[in-house]
Design a protein around this nucleic acid. Structure first.
Length: 231
DNA sequence: GGCCAGGACACCA
DNA sequence: TGGTGTCATGGC
């Protein structure tokens, strides 16, 4: 059995070779990235984009001040395509409130130390570990692994972690196996999400394919899949 | 018409 | 501490 470090690294290379760079949030302003991270909670990114376009068209994504100028009902109307509009509007308002109390505003908040920033984000109602880490990684450029549901499932399926292992355990597992690079963490998370969304079904042509079909979220009942040979 | 999506939180046993 | 319900919408 290869070490978990080797397997985690190989999974990354296999996925990168199969899917190519995903280019998540490559050129957006940090504020847009933060808003997107909140809007995408349990929501398909396509719907998040609809909401972001509406907000951008309204001029509300220029910064926290511009978003804060929206009336509550208009904010809810604009983010409606992303679903959970009341909850997410509340989270965005909580974010704006926190940013307004930060010397230096959003950039001041994002420039805090990693642990300090994470703690501050988790104190915002509606922001949990995954959203906080997405913000840390994609908006603040910190090399944190986002251990989302797909990553935890892959870790469980490959015997890298217990099935249902806590978020922090899986995060530490991947982080200890990978270079402390935001670029790698960014790409790995995006590739795992890409894999999780892939609706593969086995065909004869799949023989030898390194991407096991049953790694997807929907195939709970499948036999254990392997991205890597277990030897 | 049902299921799912780049979660978080309140509530309950 | 762990399981369950709720929040909401668009696309397939």
């Amino acid at each position: 059995m290869r070490s978990s470090r080797f397997r985690i690294r190989t999974i990354y290379h296999v996925l990168l070779a199969a899917y190519g760079p995903q280019g998540w949030w490559p050129g957006n302003h940090p504020f847009e990235t933060v808003v997107g991270a909140i809007l995408t909670q349990n929501t398909a990114w396509r719907n998040v984009e609809l909401a972001l376009v509406g907000l951008r068209t309204r001029g509300a994504l220029a910064g926290p001040e511009s978003l804060g100028r929206l009336a509550p009902d208009e904010l809810e109307r604009l983010i409606r395509p992303a679903g959970f509009r009341r909850r997410k509007a509340g989270t965005l308002r909580a974010l704006l409130s926190r940013v307004s109390r930060e010397p230096g505003g959003l950039s001041g908040l994002l420039s805090r130390g990693e642990a300090d920033l994470r703690r501050a984000l988790l104190e915002i109602r509606g922001i949990g570990p995954e959203t906080a880490d997405s913000i840390l990684l994609y908006a603040a450029g910190r090399p944190l692994f986002v251990a989302d549901a797909y990553a935890r499932r892959i870790a469980g399926r490959h015997g890298l972690a217990d099935a249902g292992a806590p978020y922090g355990d899986v995060q530490r597992l991947f982080q200890s196996a990978l270079p402390r690079s935001a670029r790698v963490m960014n790409e790995y998370h995006a590739l795992i999400v890409r894999l999780g969304k892939t609706r593969c079904r086995p065909t004869p042509a799949c023989a030898g394919c390194p991407l096991a079909w049953d790694l997807t979220m929907k195939s709970m009942g499948g036999s254990p899949g392997r991205v890597l040979p277990s030897s």
